[in-house]
Amino acid sequence: MKTKIWFITGCSKGFGKVWAEAALKRGDKVAATARNIDSLASLKQQYGDEVLLVTLDVNNREACFSAVNEAINYFGKIDILVNNAGFGHFGYVEEISESEARQQIETNLFGSLWMIQAVLPIMRNQKNGHILQVSSIGGIMAFPSLSIYHASKWAVEGICESMNQEVAQFGIKTTLIEPAAYATEWATASASFSAPIEAYNGIREAMLAARGSLKAGDPNATADAILRVVDAANPPLRLFLGKLPLIMIEPTYNNRLETWKEWNEISANAE
């Protein structure tokens, strides 16, 4: 199989680290980014010139373009972009500050957009490429306490679905990766939290209990799925990771359809 060149954001931990290691282990090459590349030292030690370490904060649009140019100068091309950098913010709508809202959107939405814009001219000129955008089950349904996170992920879902229709003509493929709960630091050390308002303590405690009862998936178990997607001749626009998303999403979508149908007479009369 032909060696692929990956560009992966957010490689210091979690999915980014797992997928970078999986790509390198099978003989591909990776531009691995993190805000602090000291966290990636083990990759360099093990894989040498097959990996390029790039310091990157995706909030900086200019830095995203510079990082992509650095990878092109080093590898000559980019076959796969994995937009993985991001974090979760926990807070009920009334609790979220302006700065918290802006930071969540800046990183998860605009950081992803800047990276996509940086690689598209390259992939368009190559007449091939594959953009993997990490979304979430929270990109297609919503839960209390994650409203601003959902806003960021629903937005990237819309961008990528639209983009897929725009760039398919250039041989560029798009896949939204939609994981459920995994044993990463997403909900702990990597997350941010709004100052709590006492009135929401009841639902807050219920949500914490519900999350505590979930069995989190093993991030290492996702590597094969990602490799199969990037090797597929016709990869999906959307891919769940784990057993839970489909179980959760079917009743959610059925409820939406039932509501639209129930109110369709009123809707139709509104023309």
Rank of each mutant, 00 (worst) to 15 (best):
L109Q: 07
A223F: 11
I96S: 03
E98V: 12
A118D: 13
A155R: 04
K153P: 01
A187T: 07
I96M: 04
N108M: 04
F193C: 00
A223W: 11
L109Y: 14
G158M: 01
A225Q: 15
F170V: 00
H130W: 10
T107P: 09
T188V: 00
K215H: 13
S162P: 02
V167I: 14
F143R: 13
T188S: 15
R228G: 12
L214A: 14
E100C: 04
S162I: 02
R204F: 02
E166Y: 03
R124G: 00
Q126C: 01
G111P: 02
P179Y: 05
I131H: 07
M115Q: 12
K173C: 03
S192Q: 14
Q133V: 06
S135A: 12
L214H: 04
M163I: 13
A233K: 15
N201W: 05
L227G: 08
E161T: 04
D224Y: 07
I116C: 10
A168S: 15
P121C: 00
G139Q: 08
V119D: 08
I197E: 15
T107G: 05
V134A: 02
R228F: 13
E106D: 15
I137G: 07
L109I: 01
S162R: 05
A151V: 05
C160S: 14
V134E: 09
R228P: 06
A199H: 08
P235F: 13
G111T: 06
I148K: 13
I116T: 08
H150Y: 02
W154Q: 02
A216W: 10
A187N: 10
Q126F: 04
N164K: 07
M123W: 04
A233L: 13
P219R: 08
T184Q: 06
R204C: 03
E157F: 00
K153C: 03
M207L: 09
T222C: 02
T174D: 03
Y200N: 01
A168I: 10
M207D: 09
Q133R: 06
A191R: 06
M115H: 11
S136G: 04
A221N: 09
A101F: 14
S194G: 02
Y149H: 03
E161C: 05
A209H: 14
R211F: 15
N125V: 09
T184D: 06
E100I: 02
W154P: 11
A221W: 09
P121Q: 05
L120E: 00
C160A: 05
I148H: 12
E161K: 07
A223R: 11
S213G: 13
S152W: 06
S147P: 01
V156A: 04
T175A: 06
Q165V: 08
L113K: 03
Y149G: 00
T184E: 09
L208Q: 15
S194A: 07
I140R: 12
N128G: 03
R124M: 14
S99D: 15
M123L: 04
I131Q: 10
H150R: 05
I140A: 01
A199G: 11
Q133T: 11
L132P: 07
L237G: 08
A181V: 10
K153Y: 00
D224R: 14
T107R: 08
E157C: 07
